[in-house]
């Protein structure tokens, strides 16, 4: 049964251990730590190359307290499909206790999901494997030093979308991965944010119970890549949701629900809150972003049947 978590009942065990090599203040590590608590011990993590893999698996150490397999950058969902199929067969043939629960959980970054692992993911969702896919979105290729991805937001300065005299950062709009997942007609899609820790854990717990594919898109504050002080990413996460930049919603069997902000804050509050990647933005660019966010938020509300 899906859990409703709070400070009292959240598991005290850590399945993503201390001593990992995430940067000081890395909220990808926080998101994974919280998700792992909600997933519990009976999982197998399939993890693409990227920050998460590097920070958790400095050979011969691992921060994982659960089985974990490292995949290439492009085939996380394919490997997860294979592991899931293998357990199905092993259970059927009696090589593994049929009543022992095992959930396959794929984890990959925004680059590994929206760009390079996209095809494998689409295939796995369409084939209907029973697994949870968590995309942790730090909005660029961070592990290799902050290159833009398809999920980098408009205006953000990265090493391959640098802000300068001739350019004002990323020229394209963030690819809407959760919506693409929804288009595969899978039973569960959600967005989550470690700044709202219990909401994140509840969604992960729900996803774990889904019979079929579940996709969760998690906001992951990255002080290094965003050029922010190390104590700010949780606050930035809250602002991202409060401004409508990263709304929190769920799509269960086609039914949309969301956490509505009664009064959206202006995106400017988020964009100008100690993030070096947005420091160059002009008033004009901020207005363009505001218009887009306002429109998309209204669209989301109407999908949720909120007028």
């Amino acid at each position: 049964m899906a859990q409703k978590y709070n400070i009292k009942n959240m598991p005290r065990e850590e399945f993503f251990a201390s001593g990992h090599r995430g940067c000081v203040g890395c909220c990808l590590a926080l998101a994974v730590r919280l998700a792992a608590k909600a997933l519990g011990p009976d999982i197998i993590v399939v993890n693409a190359t990227g920050c998460l893999e590097i920070i958790s698996s400095a050979y011969p150490e691992t921060a994982w307290e659960v089985p974990w397999i490292h995949t290439l950058f492009e085939n996380t969902a394919a490997v997860a499909s294979g592991v899931e199929a293998a357990y199905k067969v092993m259970k059927r043939k009696g090589y593994f206790p049929a009543d022992r629960p095992v959930k396959i959980v794929a984890m990959a970054g925004d680059g590994g999901t929206a760009d390079i692992g996209f095809q494998a993911l689409s295939g796995a969702l369409e084939r209907g494997h029973e697994f949870v896919y968590i995309c942790y979105d730090n909005e660029a290729y961070m592990n290799t030093g902050v290159q833009r991805s398809g999920a980098t937001p408009y205006g953000a300065s990265t090493t391959t979308s640098p802000a300068g005299k001739a350019s004002s950062g990323q020229k394209t709009w963030k690819k809407n991965m959760p919506l693409i997942a929804v288009a595969h007609n899978i039973p569960y899609v959600a967005t989550a944010n470690p700044s709202y820790p219990f909401d994140l854990m509840n969604k992960v717990s729900k996803a774990k119970d889904v019979k079929g594919p579940a996709y969760i898109h998690v906001f992951a504050g990255c002080p290094t890549g965003w050029r922010s002080p190390s104590d700010t990413p949780v606050e930035l996460g809250k602002l991202a949701t409060q401004t409508g930049v990263f709304p929190l919603y769920e799509v269960e069997n086609g039914k949309w629900t969301m956490k509505v902000e009664s009064q959206l804050k202006p995106v400017k509050e988020y964009l100008t809150a100690s993030q070096g990647r947005y420091k160059h933005l002009s008033e004009e660019t901020i207005n363009i972003i505001q218009d887009r966010v306002t429109r998309e938020y209204a669209e989301l509300k109407s999908r949720c049947g909120i007028v």
């Binding site: 001593g19 990992h20 090599r21 958790s56 400095a58 050979y59 150490e61 921060a63 307290e65």
Partner: peptide
């Protein structure tokens, strides 16, 4: 890797 949570040595 045989020791889960071995990162605690770090």
């Amino acid at each position: 890797v045989e020791n889960p949570g071995g990162s605690k040595a770090n």
